[in-house]
Amino acid sequence: MIAVLGLLVGAAVGLLLEPTVPSVLQPYLPIAVVAALDALFGGLRALLDGTFNDRVFLVSFLSNVVVAALIVFLGDQLGVGTQLSTAVVVVLGIRIFSNAAAIRRHLFRA
């Protein structure tokens, strides 16, 4: 639960301070945000499953964001940046959808 609390605090701080992201990192932001969403939904599902774990949540969040950005960076270097971005978005999108479906089943029993 401490992780969720920290996430909220960090979000509030980010909203208040509005730090500027260096332009070098700009191309990786969209994928990183999608990856963060995936980690959030996974964490929420685990929470409803009763298996939530701060450490796992944080590690999956961090690794999701880093790996997603790394894949886009690698794709850019190899000249297949857009295709790799699409692949990442498709996979993460499917995961988000099925996690959201599981969450829905938990909440509404439907």
């Binding site: 605090v9 980010g14 944080l58 964001v65």
Partner: peptide, 12 residues
């Protein structure tokens, strides 16, 4: 760590 990640996500 969570606060840093939250701030990062929101600023992104």
């Amino acid at each position: 760590l969570a606060a840093a990640l939250g701030a990062l996500t929101v600023s992104a």
